[in-house]
Structures are given as C-alpha cells and as structure tokens.
C-alpha cells in the first residue's frame, strides 16, 4: 500500500472513494461482529412497525466504512485521530453506498501534521445520508 505524506495533500482535494454494498447478510454479520442485535436491522416486520419500508443498515456500520475510507487513504503510517458523524438518512440493504471525503484544512500542531476532512456516505439517489468530519495525522516525507 502506497504511503501518502503530508506534503502530498492539498486543501480541496478528494479522497479516493470507497464503494460498499451491504446486503442483509452483511447486516447479520455486523450484528454478530458488533454485538448490535436491535431488531430494526434484521426483522422487516419490526422495521415496518417503526415506519420504515425495510430493515436499515446500521449507522455504526456506515461509521466503520468511513473509518476504512480514511485508513485506506492515510496508509500504515497515518493516524486516524477523530471522526464525527450525523445520521441524517437511512441506507437499505442492497444499495450501493459511496464513502467519500474531501480535504478541508491542513496545519501543523504540537509537532503533528494534521489534516481535516469532510467525509460522507452517499446513497444511490446522491444524498449525503451520513455526513461528518474527521481529523488525521500524516507523516512527513
């Protein structure tokens, strides 16, 4: 895996998109792997009783996808410091989700090369269903 360095990053540049299509199988796997057994994510009747047309993709699974978007980008020597997300819309199993990001700011603080990015999960309708921000640290060359 190529290592990106602080000097390679410019404000306004895009992070390589990560594509994910979680299926109902993924949701069951996530329930097991993450310990979230809330019925909203695997029982369609339950989801309907709560006013949703289908079971929902776990917001935390989307969060995990966004952490992967960032760790793929920053490489083994980069450090993910912080992410902050809002769950604004719902994702349903079978939908192709695009995890995207854009660099908003870079600065050196306490000897660390910090980069702030805007991140989001985009649904097939092009809506940013899970927008957020992140801070990463990148190595110098």
């Amino acid at each position: 895996m190529a290592q990106i360095h602080y000097g390679d990053v410019t404000e306004g540049s895009d992070i390589p998109t990560l594509e994910k299509t979680p299926t109902t199988r993924t949701l069951v796997q996530w329930a097991g792997a993450s310990g979230d057994f809330f019925e909203l994510h695997y029982d369609k009747e339950f989801a309907k009783s709560m006013g949703f047309p289908n079971v929902l993709v776990h917001g935390r699974l989307e969060a995990a996808y966004l952490t992967q978007l960032l760790t793929d980008w920053i490489g083994p020597k980069g450090e993910l410091k912080k992410i902050s997300l809002q769950y604004r819309g719902n994702a349903f199993p079978g939908e192709k989700l695009l995890c995207k990001g854009k660099v908003t700011k870079k600065y050196v603080k306490d000897g660390q090369n910090l980069v702030e990015v805007e991140i989001w999960v985009e649904n097939p309708a092009g809506q940013r269903i899970t927008p957020g921000t992140a801070v990463v640290a990148l190595p110098s060359k």
Partner: peptide, 8 residues
C-alpha cells in the same frame, strides 16, 4: 441513532 463522535 442521531450521530456519533469517536476520538482514537
């Protein structure tokens, strides 16, 4: 779930 922050 409304939102979340994680500091690593």
């Amino acid at each position: 779930a409304g939102g979340a922050d994680w500091e690593f």
